[in-house]
Design a protein around this nucleic acid. Structure first.
Length: 202
DNA sequence: AGTTCGATCGCCT
DNA sequence: GGCGATCGAACTG
């Protein structure tokens, strides 16, 4: 199990341009990237795209509000919101400059700081369940609304790409836990990963 | 000012 | 497969 320090050596930070694209492309390309916060890190294995227009499930759909304003700001920032009275969800602001859009991070494969994650998530009996959901991964890494609006390029929450290695095989499904615009194929997973929410997709 | 309900999770049957 | 927990944002009047 690598330390955060050795992961930082094996990876490079993503640039702003990575996020300044269609959220569908960003959601797909986030798979296999590494999310680092404090002494914990995980590989992104599941994402969902939320569009600025033509997507009633997106928080940006009804226009700008106090809660969702970072979705309308610069790409490459964290949008963290509170849901169901107890959980926080992490998104990356992702859209061409001037448009609103985001990528919900739905599951991670723990890579570093696993014991810390276990202490934060005693309910998880298996490593596969430590960060296998949007509310679980924020608890596992200690991500809270304090990070809403923080810059993913220069801030404490980093996203990095491995220097070497083939890109992962990707599966696509409909999104989870929404009712409006539910049929759109906007959920992306690493094929065969046991760390995704719900059942593995082959 | 009151109400509704949600981009969830874990425990119960 | 079903449901309760728990609370803030957003909408209604």
């Amino acid at each position: 199990m690598p330390s955060v320090d050795s992961l930082l050596e094996a990876t490079l930070p993503l640039k702003r341009e990575f996020y300044s694209r269609d959220p569908i492309e960003v959601a797909r390309d986030c798979l296999g990237k590494v999310l680092v916060y404090g002494q914990t890190a995980g590989r992104i294995v599941e994402t969902e795209a939320y569009l600025g227009v033509d997507d009633e499930a997106s928080h940006s759909w009804r226009g700008i509000t106090k809660r969702n304003q970072v979705l309308f700001g610069r790409p490459g920032h964290a949008y963290v919101y509170f849901i169901y009275g107890m959980y926080e969800c992490l998104n990356f602001v992702a859209a061409p400059e001037g448009q609103a859009g985001g990528v919900l991070i739905r599951a991670l494969e723990p890579l570093a700081g696993v014991e810390r994650m276990r202490r934060r998530r005693p309910a998880a009996k298996r490593t596969e369940d430590l960060a296998s959901g949007p509310g679980k991964l924020t608890v596992a890494l200690g991500i809270t609304r304090k990070l809403n609006g923080s810059d993913l390029i220069s801030g404490p929450l980093q996203v990095r790409a491995f220097r070497t290695g083939a890109p992962p095989e990707v599966a696509v499904t409909r999104r989870i836990g929404i009712s409006r615009s539910a049929d759109l194929p906007l959920r992306f997973l690493i094929r065969g990963s046991p760390f995704v929410s719900g059942k593995r997709v082959d």
